[in-house]
Each structure stands twice: as C-alpha cells, then as structure tokens.
Design a protein around this nucleic acid. Sequence first.
DNA 1: ATAATACTAAACGTTGACGTTCACAAATAA
DNA 2: TTATTTGTGAACGTCAACGTTTAGTATTAT
Lengths: 215, 215
Amino acid sequence: MTDEDSDTEAPARAGRPTDERKTEAILDAAREAFFGQGYAAASIERIAEQAGVSKVTIYKRFGDKAGLLEALVRRQADNMTTTIGEANRDAATLEVQLVNFGFTLLSFLFDESHFHFDSMLVIERDRQREAAQRFFDAGPGTMRRELTKMLAAAHKRGDVHIPQPQRAAEDLLSLWKGFADLELRFGVVDMPGPARIRSHVRHGVKVFLRAYRAE
Amino acid sequence: MTDEDSDTEAPARAGRPTDERKTEAILDAAREAFFGQGYAAASIERIAEQAGVSKVTIYKRFGDKAGLLEALVRRQADNMTTTIGEANRDAATLEVQLVNFGFTLLSFLFDESHFHFDSMLVIERDRQREAAQRFFDAGPGTMRRELTKMLAAAHKRGDVHIPQPQRAAEDLLSLWKGFADLELRFGVVDMPGPARIRSHVRHGVKVFLRAYRAE
DNA sequence: ATAATACTAAACGTTGACGTTCACAAATAA
DNA sequence: TTATTTGTGAACGTCAACGTTTAGTATTAT
C-alpha cells in the first residue's frame, strides 16, 4: 500500500539491482574513445565492447550518444572540482603556495586521461553548449576564482603589487599552461613527468613574481 | 569583360584547362567543414556542395579524404609562414617591436577560419602525424624561433635581462595566447576585435618586460 | 516459487558517408 | 572539326554506426 519512497541510498527494490561498476566501466571506456578519437569518430559499439557491457545497457542508462557525453562531462568536471579543492592548501610563503597550486593543476591537466578533453569539447561546443560551459566553470573558471582570491590577499598583505588580481591570475595560468601544452598537443614532445612539471611550474611562478613583485 | 591572363604561365596543353578557382573553393569549403566539425564528422559530399563542385572533382584532385586534409594543412601552414614573415618588422623600441609582432600573431590566431584548426589536428594527430608536425613547425615553431632571435639580440644590447631567450620566448607566447584562448574555445566570450587584441597584446608585453627588465 | 528488474546477444531497419563507375557535357589545342 | 582533357550528375556497392526490438538469462525481494 504505502510505498516507502525513501530518498536514501538503500534501494530495497525488487528485482536485480543495477551494477554501478558497469556505469563506471562505461564512462571509462567512453572517456578513452571520445578523448582519443573525438565524438563523431567514437563508436558506441566499441565502447560497449571495451567496457565489457552490452550495447543496450548503455542506451538504457544514458539514452543516446549525446547523453553519454553529457554524463562524461559531468563526471570529469566533478573530478576536476575535487582535485582543485584539494590543491588549495595554505603554505608558508606565497611562492610555495603558488607552486603547490600549479603543480596540482598541471599534474591534472597533463594526464593522459584528461589531455584530449577540451579538444573534443571545443569541436562539439556548438552541439553541447551547456556541457562546454559547465566544464569551463568547473575547470578553468574555478581555477581563476581561487587564484584571484589568493593573489588579492597577497596584495593586501603587501607581498606583491597586484592591483588587478583577476588579470594577474589569468597571466599565471597562461604561463603555466603555456607553450608546453602546445608542444604536447602537436606531439612534438612526450608527456612530462612530475619532475618536469614541477620545474615548469616553478619557472612560471618565478617569472610571475618578478613581474608582480612589490616595488 | 574578358580578362586576358598574361601574368600566369601558359599551360600549352591540349584539352580543357583545370580551373584553379575550383581548387581554392574546395579548400575553403574543406576548411569550414574540417575546422568546424572535425575530420570524422565532415562529409565530402557537403564540402563538394558548398564549394559548388562535383564530388568526383575532389577525388580527382586530392585522391581521398586524408589527401584533402593533407593539402589543407599545407596551405594553412604556408599561409601562416607568410603572415609571420610580414610581421617581423623593425621598430624603434623593443616594446613596440614586440607589440607589433604579437598583434600580427594574435590577429591570425583569433581568426574564425584558423581558430579551430589545432583542435581538429590534435585529435587527428595520431593518424596525421607528419601533418601535425608540419603545422607546428610553420606556426608556433617559427614563432618561437623568430621571437628567440629578437630577445637574444635585445639581451645583447642590454635592454633586458634574458639569459635563456628560448624559454622567455615561450613565456611571452604563453602570455599572449593565454587565457583569452581558453575562454574563446569554450564559447564563454566572443571573438575579440582588433582593439581588444591590441590591448591584450600590450598587457602581455608589459608583464613580460617587467619580469625580464634589466636589473 | 514467483514476480520484478537488470542485463545480454543477436538481429533488424535506417541512415549517412566513402569512394567508384559511366555516360555525357564543356573547354581548349591542334 | 577532331582529339584531348576537365568537369558533372546520377547511380552504384560497401560499410560502419545509430538506435530498436525481441527472446532469453541473471539476480534480487517477497
């Protein structure tokens, strides 16, 4: 009679329960396919095969190809938000603080599983406008906000001279992403390891602080 | 009015001569399609239609889809080389010199017809490795070389303190391309006009020169 | 056991794109 | 005019992918 519509995690429903690991496997396979070959070239059939899942399961869960991309974007964005949250630690000096922040960011960006992401999304942005916007907010947007706050605080303390913190934040993000990103994208160099990433971040921070040091 | 062609070389061959304007029209249409939708999603049939050309003509001239992309990449790379060559003018001060250089570069990069180029190429780079490399050499690679030379000369003159000119060139290129590029790619802002571009370039140069000024 | 739900495999219809062939029209040199 | 080459349109074969359907299996609560 009275259906227990409990909004808790315990389903307590009849029938075979959904296997959440399959959802993860599908999204992992979709990531590989979409990022590696682009949205159009990726095939649901191969995604299903690689995920060890029936094609029908994908359609049951995500509706269609666009829905699968939508879900993937959401997961990646959440993932990024989490990573960024963990990066915002306090440290002794501003320099160390920035280096930590940048290292976390670049380690994330220069990861095989995320690297092709925006390239695909950019091409698809006309068809997936809100998805692209959401990803920007979760990734670069959040990054800019956090960094802007940090820089404004440092300016107030007198550590640096940064009258326009948002613009400065964009400068630093540009220096970090920078040319290494270009070389990577065109396959001129290999993916850098942690040591190279840290060195690159340090260099960016140094240049940045030289430009914005207190007079 | 009939135009008498006297500039071009006479083919002096029998039969109907090839219409070079058709080649251009095909490449223009291919650019729109490839850059806008990506390689896989673009269709030769629609490219032919948009170019006002028979599909067979495309196959006669370019062999297949990959050949068409190949030719397109080559044309874009040549185009870029030409533009960069024109940008390298001497000017009174280093600052003016850099601003001119950057303005030419960004005007080219932030043009609708080139903007999606690397996004497509990145996804296709595994299948079109040499095309990607060629484009990198013609574009960012040349840019870095030219800029490195300019900065090394300025360092020798004592105008600035740049012991590692190539790294500094990468920094400046990063600052220029920077965050505006990201916002554009995700559709957060519209394509900037010349005024905004010049302002952005100026800012980049200022930050750069503050960081690398002579002590 | 039974009902209910998740899931699979295989087949299906449909669409769109690649690349080819063929008959024919258009343009030019001889 | 004639030979030669460019270009067109329409049709064709092939293939890969989307998304659906169906019949049946697996897993759970009652």
